[in-house]
């Protein structure tokens, strides 16, 4: 983990100075084809240096004893600097204290197994206990096949914890990013009080290839893209990456709890 921690610090150092006016940098980044990581997202969303990650260290979990799974995770951990497909913690955004989770598709297409499910559940529980808003940037290919039925159970678990948080007055903002599909789309991603979608993100339950095979026809251009979701009534707003932070600050202000 030493590498991962150093990696993380390095990332924050790199982007901290950009905090004052990130717009030109973000606009440039939108044209960039380098992977946009959870660290990039946090640096572009949270107030500089304010993010503190939860300790989510998890024992090595391999419910199916699936050949090569733990080795693959280890390699990815070294390559990406994250333990699994999500980073979760607290931060301030425009001065508002918030619980923030960011999924990172470099890690097995950000599929959801126990680690991701647990991160979301703990984040919602922390937000609940501390009366903080919860913001999740979702991205995922769906449930993690290598964890089998236990991955499917994470859909029920995350939905239950988030529902409880929401029922007791918590604000949950879901920001759907590219791609949000399968078991993540069909659970906590779609349960936001407010749901934003990043411009051009692919969002759906079944993947386009599976749908085309099932119905035997080609899908129209733009099918399951952010604007399509807005048109069909599934998201509040489609937002460019460069304005997500300011949109979140607005929403946090609108939901501020007066003491």
């Amino acid at each position: 983990m030493i590498n991962a921690v150093d990696n993380r610090k390095d990332k924050f150092r790199r982007y901290k100075k950009l905090r004052k006016d990130p717009t030109p940098y973000l606009e440039a980044l939108e044209k960039d084809d380098k992977p946009y990581t959870a660290f990039d997202r946090i640096a572009d969303t949270a107030d500089g240096g304010s993010f503190e990650s939860f300790d989510l260290s998890c024992p090595e979990l391999d419910p199916l004893n699936f050949t090569g799974y733990l080795d693959k995770k280890k390699t990815l951990e070294e390559e990406t600097g994250i333990e699994d497909a999500i980073v979760a913690g607290t931060c301030t955004i425009g001065g508002y204290k918030t619980v923030l989770c960011v999924m990172d598709k470099r890690f097995m297409m950000a599929s959801m197994g126990i680690y991701v499910g647990e991160a979301v559940a703990k984040a919602a529980e922390y937000a609940h206990e501390n009366k903080l808003p919860l913001i999740i940037f979702t991205a995922s290919g769906g449930a993690r096949m290598q964890e089998g039925i236990v991955a499917l159970m994470q859909m029920a678990k995350t939905s239950a914890v988030i529902e409880k948080f929401k029922e007791e007055g918590g604000l949950y903002i879901s920001v759907l990013t590219d791609p949000t599909t399968g078991g993540v789309s069909a659970s906590f991603a779609m349960l936001g009080d407010i749901t934003l979608a990043e411009e051009d993100a692919l969002i759906g339950f079944a993947g386009p290839r599976v749908i085309e095979q099932t119905i035997g026809e080609k899908l129209p251009k733009g099918f399951q893209r952010a604007d399509f979701l807005k048109e069909h009534g599934h998201v509040d707003e489609v937002v460019k990456r460069s304005v997500i932070r300011s949109k979140l600050i607005l929403l946090l202000k609108l939901h501020e709890r007066k003491q």
Binding site: M155, A156, S159, A160, I162, E163, K164, E167, S185, A186, S187, F188, A189, M190, L191, I203, G204, F205, A206, V210, I211, T214, I215, L219, F223, Q224, F228, H232, G233, H234
Partner: peptide
């Protein structure tokens, strides 16, 4: 069902709502 109308009519949200409501 992985179909076109299913996506348009919000199958993800429909499943998610069932999970959330059944849990309470």
């Amino acid at each position: 069902y992985p179909g076109k109308e299913a996506e348009m009519n919000g199958i993800s949200r429909a499943i998610a709502d069932n999970l959330a409501v059944m849990s309470t």
